[in-house]
Design a protein around this nucleic acid. Sequence first.
DNA 1: CGTAACCTTGAGTAATGTCAAGACTGGTGG
DNA 2: CCACCAGTCTTGACATTACTCAAGGTTACG
Lengths: 243, 243
Amino acid sequence: MDHHTLERLVCKLRTRCRIDAVAEAALLALPFTVRTMPRGQYIVREGDIARRACVLLDGFAYRQKILDDGGRQIVALQVPGDAVDLQNTLLKVADHNVQALTAVVAAEIPRAAILDIAGKHPSVAHAFWLDTLVDGAIAFEWIANIGRRDARRRLAHLLCECAIRLQVSGGRDGETFTLPLTQEQLSDILGLTGVHINRTLRQLAAEGLIARDRQAIRILDDRALRNAGGFTPAYLHLDLLDD
Amino acid sequence: MDHHTLERLVCKLRTRCRIDAVAEAALLALPFTVRTMPRGQYIVREGDIARRACVLLDGFAYRQKILDDGGRQIVALQVPGDAVDLQNTLLKVADHNVQALTAVVAAEIPRAAILDIAGKHPSVAHAFWLDTLVDGAIAFEWIANIGRRDARRRLAHLLCECAIRLQVSGGRDGETFTLPLTQEQLSDILGLTGVHINRTLRQLAAEGLIARDRQAIRILDDRALRNAGGFTPAYLHLDLLDD
DNA sequence: CGTAACCTTGAGTAATGTCAAGACTGGTGG
DNA sequence: CCACCAGTCTTGACATTACTCAAGGTTACG
């Protein structure tokens, strides 16, 4: 995949709806500038006024909120192809931060160009809307995960989700993958503490559900892991093309 | 407000973006049937295939997930004017339930009509997209609330949010309002138990932040309550019209 | 007036957080 | 090539929040 075109965006949108040739051409013709960013860099800051939308061409990012007491919660993970601030493009002022999880290659598209293409191409507007809906569906699942599952089930659920999303976006086999997340970051996703994540990861490993080596995770027993996490992939809406 | 027209939908969309006369006419001309439903009735069931979208004309509803162990998590609240399953309209198969919180008057619009109007009127598509984005922004805030705040702050935050949303949707004064939620339901929103909600409500009352009488809540010290909940209304994006 | 749903309260328990120290790892400069 | 350093992981002991169970009180409504 060429990291210097918007092909990745088209590709992502295509996982969930049809993009005809005209719309594809229009998308690929969007004006953009490529930026590379190191791990940890802020892509969007809370309070920013949107002038541009950023599409991840390579690397991962996360959305994050800092609370008044300094606590941090990661509210979403973004994979290549994701438009990380369509939200902010329409909503004008960003209500959360977006930060690079790994080194990132991103395309910056002017806000006006996004609004323009969405206005002129209903199928593109449809695709963006759909993308937003799926992000919302994932957020709902996370609410349920954090609100109603204990640490072990929460973590199992997240691992299942990551396995699938990494597989879809990166073409990995899905059984073994590298989660570029520290245990601290995992805890900020799941509403737990780093210490507790550590213990829970080891517990899952001790049970034979996963194997770990640094940040590489291997799912040893997919069925059992899904079971442990109460995981059903319906909310990812990966089957929308089967119309 | 007449409960038998789609005026309420236009009204809701207008809180966040301009709807010109042509688009308004098209919206009001959408075909629909009115249904009334008693408290507790399912409006959408997980697994349903969307044939119609439902707009709340009067009454409240909530989105809810049932977990494999029987646990329940409420993932969103919907107020009059909300389209409760635009999500499912586009996503085809519902990944969660929507249930009437109070008695409800709703307008059912065929799926095809929604897709059609969004395709023909970019400003309507834009408004729907925006609506979805705001729902997503609220979901993100809930993730942060559940993941990183203790019971007292969680509840204070929710009360602040409800006060504002009820005020915007219903024209109440905002200081005193009736939350049509049982303590059990509050606990399912906040990822706690009913017993703990009970204790936390009384604690907030004992501190002089709120007064309670059945389900009526009066905010006695708005500043202190917002402070307790770390509440900032930015994520509700109520100021989008000030362009 | 009786009933079901809801609220309230107490006592004991389990899950998770806090604090603190030591071990490992990968990268950097000498 | 080695020594060091920062970041991360690991582990233990202890504290705390929130859960569970269970009983009794209250309210709304037929």
